[in-house]
Design a binder for these strands. Structure first.
Length: 582
RNA sequence: GCGCCCGUAGCUCAGUGGAUAGAGCGCUGGCCUCCGAAGCCAGAGGUCGCAGGUUCGAAUCCUGCCGGGCGCGCCA
C-alpha cells in the first residue's frame, strides 16, 4: 500500500491497454510517477505518455489523452489532465491520501520497508581500519556511511552482511609490534631511547605495553626479534582491535563478520586466486612506467609479475609481488574479494576513505576478472572531514598532539550528532563538521531540528492524554479515527510528504546514498514545524483542541504518523528518536 | 602528464532526462503580555564554470576547454 506505487500500477495498466489496442507490446521502459516541482501541475505527474509515444507510433499528447481516459475511471483520481508536451497531471481524492495515514499507523517503524532487493545478498564492507591505533574522525565517516547504507539496503529488502576486513598481516602490523616492544621496554624500566621515525608514536601503546608486561612479565626483554615478534604482534593486534571495537560500539556500529587477512593468506587463497589468473593469461611479467608528476629519483625499472588490469579498464597493470617475495596488498585484496564473492554475495559494496581513491579502478578490474562479470561491485569513497569549532578549523597534527580521535568527538557531542552530521553530505563531497554546531539547539543544526520535530510530536500526544483523560490515543485507535477533518492544505502537504517515504527509501537504496534520508527527514520536519506553528497563530489549528476529541484524534493521527516516519528514517541513520528535548 | 571528485543565490549545499532550478545561513520585514516561538511566515537574491553535441525536453547524459581538491612504482 503505497500511493505512488498504486498510481504507477494504474499507469502501467493503462499503457498496456493502449498497447493492446494498437497491436504492439509496451517496452519495459521506466517512467516517472512523482510529485511535480510546481504544485500547479497537480499532486502527481507522470511522463508515461512521453516515454511510450515513440514505441506506439503516437504523438505524446494523443497517448496522454488515451491514458487519461482510462485513469479517470479510478476512484482514487479526483482531477486529471494533460499538460505541456504530454505530461499527465493528477489530483487524488483527499481520502486516498488520508488513508495512507492508517497504513503508516499500522506499519509503525516498518513503514517504507520495501521488497526492492528481493532478498538478494549484499556484502557491505566498511571501516576495515588497520589495527594499529584508535580511529580518527575520517574513519568515523566511513563507519557511519557504511552502517547507514547497510541499514538502508536492509530496509529496501536486501539481505545485508556487514563486514570488516582486518589487515592483520604485513609490514604495518610488524611495525606495530616493534612500536609496542619499544613501549614494553620502557614499561619494564629500560631506556630504549627515542622511537624510530616510522614507529607508531601514540600514547595508547603505553597502556597496551603495561598490559603485555602484566601478562608476560619481562620474558621478552633481551630476546631476539624472531622470538618476540609474533607473540607481541598478536597481542598488539588483539589490543588494537579491542580499541577499535570500543570506538565502533560508542558510535553504535557493529559488524557481522570480521575477516582476517592473515587467515585468508594462510589458507592459500592468494595462491589459488593468482594461479587462476595465471591460467587465464591475466598475469605477465613486465616493467611499469615510472610514476608521473612526482619526484622519482629512486625509481628504477624492474621487471615484475603484473595483473593485467588494463584488460578490465584500469590505467596500468598492477604489481602482485614485492621484491622481497611477499604479496602486495593488492594481491591479498584480490583474494579477499574473490572470497567474498564465493561466499555467495553477488553484490559487493566497499566503503573506502578518500586516500584509497586511486585503487578503485584496479579493484573493479580485479572483481570483474575474478567473478567473470558475475559480481556487482562498487566502491563508495568518503571524502575528507574538516573539523571545526564554532567556525574555526581544528588543526590536526599527530606531531603537535592536537590530533582529535573519533572517540573524543563522540564523547563530546554524542553518537547521534556524529552520525547525523556525517550523513548531511553525499559521500563524495568533503564534509565540514563543526563541533559547536552539532550540539547547538537551533534551526542551523539539522540534528536538533529533526529531533525537535519528533519531540514536539511526542509532546502533542502527551498533551492529548492530559486534555482527554481516558481517551485512547494508541496507534490502533488513531488508525480508526475519522480523518475527514484533515482538509487544510498544510495538512495534506505533510501527508503527501509522508506518503512519499517509501519512494525516498527505494530511491536512496538504489542510488546507495544514505544521505538522502537525512535530507528527506529535514524536509518532513520543516513541514511539521510549519504546521505546528499555525497553532501559535490560531488556537483552532492546534493539534489538541479542547472539547473536540474527534478533531484532535484526526490531527493526532497525522502527528503520530509524522513521528513514525521520522523515527523510521532515524532508525536507518542509527540515530535515536528523542521524545523530549532536554 | 594521467585518473577520480567537485564547480548551482553573498556563504554552505540539495536536486536518480522533465514544466517558471530549491533549502538553510546571512540580509530586510513580520508572528508570542512564556504555560505549543529551541519555532514559523514573507521578501530580495541565479548567464546551474565556459563552448559545442544528443534529446520532444539537459543543472542532470556525451565531447572539449577553464578553475579547485585528492591521488598516481613493491606502503596499507
Amino acid at each position: 500500500m503505497n500511493v505512488y506505487g498504486d498510481i504507477r500500477t494504474l499507469f502501467r495498466d493503462a499503457v498496456g491497454h493502449v498497447a493492446g489496442e494498437r497491436g504492439v507490446s509496451a517496452p519495459d521502459a521506466d517512467f516517472s510517477v512523482e510529485p511535480p516541482r510546481d504544485a500547479r501541475h497537480g499532486e502527481i505527474s507522470s511522463n508515461a505518455a512521453l516515454v511510450f509515444a515513440g514505441a506506439f507510433g503516437m504523438k505524446p499528447r494523443d497517448l496522454a489523452d488515451r491514458l487519461v481516459a482510462r485513469l479517470e475511471a479510478s476512484d482514487a483520481v479526483a482531477e486529471i489532465s494533460v499538460a505541456g508536451p504530454g505530461f499527465v497531471n493528477l489530483v487524488l481524492e483527499p481520502g486516498r491520501w488520508r488513508d495512507q495515514l492508517r497504513h503508516i499507523l499500522g506499519q509503525g517503524i516498518g513503514y517504507g520497508d520495501s521488497q526492492l532487493g528481493a532478498g538478494q545478498r549484499v556484502n557491505v564492507e566498511y571501516v576495515s581500519v588497520n589495527p594499529t591505533g584508535p580511529m580518527h574522525v575520517g574513519h568515523g565517516r566511513g563507519a557511519v556511511v557504511g552502517d547507514a547504507l547497510a541499514a538502508l539496503l536492509a530496509k529496501a529488502g536486501y539481505a545485508v552482511t556487514r563486514e570488516y576486513y582486518v589487515n592483520d598481516a604485513g609490514v604495518q602490523v610488524d611495525l606495530l609490534a616493534r612500536s609496542l616492544y619499544h613501549r614494553y621496554r620502557e614499561a619494564a624500566g629500560e631506556a630504549p631511547g627515542d622511537m624510530r621515525e616510522d614507529f607508531y608514536p601514540g600514547d595508547y601503546l603505553a597502556g597496551t605495553a603495561s598490559a603485555l608486561l602484566a601478562r608476560d612479565g619481562t620474558k621478552w626483554l633481551g630476546a631476539a626479534e624472531e622470538v618476540w615478534l609474533e607473540p607481541v604482534r598478536d597481542f598488539a593486534i588483539e589490543a588494537m582491535m579491542d580499541l577499535i571495537r570500543d570506538d565502533l560500539a560508542a558510535l553504535g556500529v557493529a559488524h557481522d563478520v570480521f575477516a582476517s587477512e592473515r587467515e585468508l593468506a594462510s589458507s592459500g587463497a592468494v595462491e589459488r586466486t593468482l594461479s587462476e589468473l595465471e591460467e587465464r593469461g591475466l598475469l605477465h611479467v613486465g616493467v611499469l612506467d615510472p610514476p608521473k608528476g612526482k619526484a622519482d629519483e629512486d625509481w628504477e625499472p624492474r621487471p615484475q609479475t603484473l595483473f593485467r588490469s588494463t584488460a578490465f579498464g584500469d590505467d596500468a597493470d598492477r604489481a602482485i609481488r614485492k621484491s622481497d617475495g611477499s604479496w602486495t596488498y593488492f594481491a591479498t585484496d584480490m583474494a579477499y574479494h574473490r572470497d567474498k564473492f564465493e561466499r555467495g554475495f553477488p553484490v559487493l559494496i566497499d566503503v573506502w576513505g578518500a586516500d584509497h581513491k586511486g585503487y578503485v579502478k584496479r579493484m573493479e578490474a580485479a572483481v570483474e576478472a575474478l567473478s567473470a562479470g558475475g559480481a556487482r561491485f562498487s566502491v563508495l569513497v568518503c571524502n575528507l572531514v574538516n573539523l571545526s569549532e564554532a567556525g574555526r578549523p581544528v588543526k590536526m597534527s599527530k606531531r603537535a598532539g592536537t590530533y582529535v580521535t573519533l572517540r573524543e568527538v563522540v564523547d563530546r557531542v554524542g553518537k547521534d550528532a556524529v552520525r547525523f552530521m556525517m550523513l548531511t553530505r553525499g559521500n563524495e563531497a568533503a564534509l565540514d563538521f563543526d563541533l559547536a554546531r552539532a550540539v547547538e539547539q537551533s534551526r542551523d543544526n539539522p540534528v536538533f531540528y529533526v529531533q525537535y520535530a519528533h519531540a514536539r510530536a511526542c509532546s502533542a500526544l502527551r498533551n492529548a492524554a492530559d486534555a482527554f483523560p481516558g481517551e485512547d490515543f494508541s496507534d490502533a485507535a488513531l488508525g480508526r479515527a475519522a480523518l475527514d477533518p484533515l482538509d487544510g492544505e498544510e495538512e495534506l502537504a505533510l501527508i503527501r510528504r509522508l506518503a512519499g517515504w517509501p519512494r525516498t527509501v527505494e530511491a536512496a537504496a538504489e542510488a546507495a546514498e544514505p544521505h538522502r534520508i537525512a535530507y528527506a527527514l529535514s524536509e518532513i520536519a520543516a513541514a511539521f514545524h510549519g504546521l505546528w506553528n499555525l497553532g501559535n497563530v490560531d488556537e483552532a489549528r492546534r493539534f489538541v483542541v479542547a472539547g473536540d476529541p474527534a478533531l484532535s484524534r484526526a490531527r493526532l493521527a497525522l502527528v503520530r504518523a509524522t513521528a513514525l516516519v521520522i523515527a523510521s528514517g532515524l532508525d536507518i541513520m542509527g540515530v535515536a528518536p528523542v521524545e523530549e528535548m532536554r
